[in-house]
Design a binder for these strands. Structure first.
Lengths: 135, 135
DNA sequence: GTACTTCTTAAAGTTAACTTGAAGTCAAGA
DNA sequence: TCTTGACTTCAAGTTAACTTTAAGAAGTAC
């Protein structure tokens, strides 16, 4: 089984070596084997990194991912905490989704302002959205 | 016409006094009149702040808002730059929207993982989404 | 006149997720 | 042997949008 240097792992995972060292310091990656001081990784690190990236894309913070990887996944019965975490994150995503959609409609409204009293228009658009309870 | 202290403005606008001072230092607010060293604002500051908040909710950064308020709005023909800015921001919002929706579907997929090999499931869910070009 | 509140400034702290820089080690190649 | 390239650590820098802190001044109430 091939052992990978930090820059090989970095290239294959699409991150920088410094990112991997950083992940190590914050406890996201285990301390790898060393050969004359240099890190050597098993290939399995790549799927761990993929999990991290997937979780990141799903909106988890690195702290949450660390908890997930180190505390929840290795535990005997991860179900409860895991589902709680995902459900909570799903809630956050829904809120964020509404927020983004609100931003969009705000922009779409504002783009129909004439140029004459642009500031006034932005102001009244903001007020209108406030009225609509879209905040 | 009543003149407002910084904390009155702050309360009415729903921000902290320190935020107003900060806005002043970054050029978002003009230097207000002083009475024995203390800031006094005309009520019109409130609609300017509302414009700032609206623009912020629309996803503009403070730097963009500063440019908008100081450079574009006071200029004779703001049309082009203004529309460009809003269109670009609308693009960004659409991208963000897709991203958030992607996060959601990722989470919804992952929540259907059994507990047995959760890490594997997250990994393969991530791969699946990669395949779908949803990244 | 003193206690209290609100204001002032300038500088440093906060958060997340890294990145950059400085100074040094190590192994391989010409 | 000398150079080159990749690695090492640790500390500090980056970005955005503020917040906090410290130390002090000014106005108001009693």
């Amino acid at each position: 089984m091939a052992e990978l240097t930090i820059s090989q792992v970095a290239r294959q995972a699409g991150v920088r070596p410094s990112t991997l060292r950083y992940y190590e310091t914050v406890g996201l990656l285990p301390n790898p084997k060393r050969i004359s001081g240099q890190r050597r990784y098993a290939e399995s690190i790549l799927s761990r990194l993929a999990v991290i990236q997937t979780a990141q894309q799903a909106g988890f913070t690195l702290t949450e991912i660390r908890i997930l990887l180190n505390d929840i996944l290795p535990s005997a019965s991860p179900t409860l905490q895991w589902h709680d975490l995902v459900q909570r994150k799903l809630q956050e995503m829904n809120t964020l989704l509404q927020h983004v959609q609100h931003m969009k409609s705000l922009l779409e409204d504002v783009i129909h302002c004439g140029d004459v009293q642009l500031a006034d228009c932005i102001y009244s658009t903001g007020q209108k959205h406030k009225m609509m309870g879209n905040d």
